[in-house]
Amino acid sequence: MGNCLKRSTTDDISLLRGSDSVRESSSDQLGQPYQEPIPAEDVSPVYYPSPSVSRSVVQLTEEEQVKIAKRIGLIQNLPIGTYDGCKKERECVICMVEFLVGDTVRCLPCMHTYHMKCIDGWLMRSLTCPSCLEPVDAALLTSYETT
């Protein structure tokens, strides 16, 4: 099994800009503009080119960097909402905590809803819904075609 490596526990998602420079985002908001590039030996975010493969940024191949950049782009396109208490789902199955009115949630194309922080951590590893396993990217592509 390839998942015995030590992983970073941070929920921050760093963005990749281009294929040669990699920088750390200053907050956990997607799409945040960048400040100073941080040297790789100080911060070493861990990425998951596939669910059981974890690599620090310096170990990523160019192909994997492109894959991750695309993935971040897809995640950014998924709608974000605020939990208003009238959704069918009452708890986030990732953290198993009940939604509170005002929580920031992300709704996948299959209509399953999760805390944004929880689902983004999962989508960085696998672009499928953790509940129904529907591929998130395929659904997104179809929804682009029909609109």
């Binding site: 099994m1 998942n3 990732i94 929880c118 999962w122 696998s126 499928t128």
Partner: peptide, 10 residues
């Protein structure tokens, strides 16, 4: 499911 077919809802 203990490898690549794991999902966070399991």
């Amino acid at each position: 499911i203990l490898k690549d077919q794991w999902a966070a809802a399991m």
